[in-house]
Design a protein around this nucleic acid. Sequence first.
DNA 1: ATAACTAGGACGGGATCTGTCCTAATGCCT
DNA 2: AGGCATTAGGACAGATCCCGTCCTAGTTAT
Lengths: 328, 328
Amino acid sequence: MLGRMTTDTPARLLQLLSLLQTPREWPGGELADRLGVSRRTVRRDIDRLRELGYPVEASKGADGGYRLVAGKAMPPLLLDDEEAVAIAVGLRAGAGHAVAGVDEASVRALAKLEQVLPARLRHRVATLQAATTPLTMGDGASIAPETLTVMASAVAGRERLRFVYRAADGSETRRQAEPYRLVSTGRRWYLVAYDLDREDWRTFRVDRVSEPFATGARFAPREMPTGSAAEYLRRSIQRQQETYGFAVAFAGTAAEVAARLPGWLGTPVEEEGGGGGWCVVRGETGDPVEWLAVRLVMAGHEFVVREPAELVACVRELGGRLSRAGGA
Amino acid sequence: MLGRMTTDTPARLLQLLSLLQTPREWPGGELADRLGVSRRTVRRDIDRLRELGYPVEASKGADGGYRLVAGKAMPPLLLDDEEAVAIAVGLRAGAGHAVAGVDEASVRALAKLEQVLPARLRHRVATLQAATTPLTMGDGASIAPETLTVMASAVAGRERLRFVYRAADGSETRRQAEPYRLVSTGRRWYLVAYDLDREDWRTFRVDRVSEPFATGARFAPREMPTGSAAEYLRRSIQRQQETYGFAVAFAGTAAEVAARLPGWLGTPVEEEGGGGGWCVVRGETGDPVEWLAVRLVMAGHEFVVREPAELVACVRELGGRLSRAGGA
DNA sequence: ATAACTAGGACGGGATCTGTCCTAATGCCT
DNA sequence: AGGCATTAGGACAGATCCCGTCCTAGTTAT
């Protein structure tokens, strides 16, 4: 009877969870060794994890073992340093141009992760981030991930926010606001907040915000003005959003083209009564036209832009530049 | 004295950790309420977390509170459903074309996450993944994230792997192998494994692998052949890798061009004694030339490709296609 | 100054945890 | 078919730990 070792139960459970998250099978004996407890205790711990809702699967028989499988709820993720860095970099890279719907959660996750990311890993993230900078947009309206995470934290923590806002005419003003929600539509981000100086609700374009920081001050949430908050958000943002429709004809059958086209762009439809082997893709987007043009040309099919005029102009310009680059 | 509530200590600690990961401050009283224990116990729990290495910071004074800050080690990440989905989607999007160094960890993290991702979230990930498919490569050498995660799990779990391999000439063969390591260089992924049929070590290009699955069978790791494993890997992959050098002249000063060019492409240098306002970028990459061409044209400066010939041809082709798309 | 919070010591009773037995059932390998 | 290693779980006793209830001290914003 050697008595209990120094490590206490909760720590051991966490360690066990960490071990089980490695994608392999762990025999009870090995776990007992690693955790420094008896085999019986390991069985009890595993029972406990199961009761907590983390489904541990066991294979019986010789070289059986335990392994954590998918269950009803997300168990706590136990990441090593490199994995944490990889996730941070991945999320930051995607923060600017993700899909509608994921991106808010993505920013929340990033904020959560960066809140607890050890200092020694931060510079690694920053370095890699710099190396992986994606192609900058035509209008340079890129958003620093830091800006988003600071804002997300402020929203979640109900803290007042100070920042500099650059209006459409280029003039900059200092603002102080109570951030209410961070939303993204297409590729644009908006902060809905109560502007304390203007004493009214405002919607800010995040790409025009700089130097945001959360003052420690907490605030009690206000009522949104016009009835439903969701409705207000929708209208408030729609007013600011600049989307445009486009129509492009591709050479090829609808099936051929669809196979090479990113799904979110739109679905190609065969042109009625048109000349054989052409189909048309119509859609709407808020992306810069350069971005769209690149997507279209990478599909590998001949195509003709029908609208808008801006896209036609952009396609011509890029085409000319590329042709000249080829020394034609 | 109401006695102890039903929840046991480890569960409570996990719940506490989860609450503290919300980016806000929690007063002790509120935590006590939520956890259903006395305030004193909350203090003790927080002490415990600190001893475990998770630094909980406390603000004293009125409306102070607790909050989890960055410490020495990564605490377990407690994600809600949406955050988990966002991370999965982000990592999968980045899996194909991440930066050297991060990507292996990135795949490990993805494998870890998908191992425990609740079933009801999986289809959401798949749906979003389909929507966010990036521009497909010219040569179609894209890799399904599933392939990578299956392989990563097999490597970590020392499980045998079966898959179909498409050789360079297009012929397909079934393989059975003991996966040793998954490495990525530039944008290419390689699986280093012991081929059980050929009875020798092989390096497989992952983009030529299909239908991989891990048979349950475990194997004992073999010795790598030529001395240092790292050395073998390096040479084995170098043999397969096809990189090429490129040289591109840009109109503009080095500073101007550098500002618009992704950093990993290379650093522009002013041409000696050349005509004013041109600079040259030289680099080496394994990317498909289409990808490179897009990066170059998005920089927004006039440019001329000097080498390689493939890039010149590609630039001409894309330029022609775009010009025709503009109806020129 | 007052209020509200964190920080932590002392104490006792009850719950809990652990190791050591034990038996049963399952699957793999020879 | 038989043997072996594994998971699964009951019973028990003793040491340990945990929790709530007191208490005091220190800090900060109002």
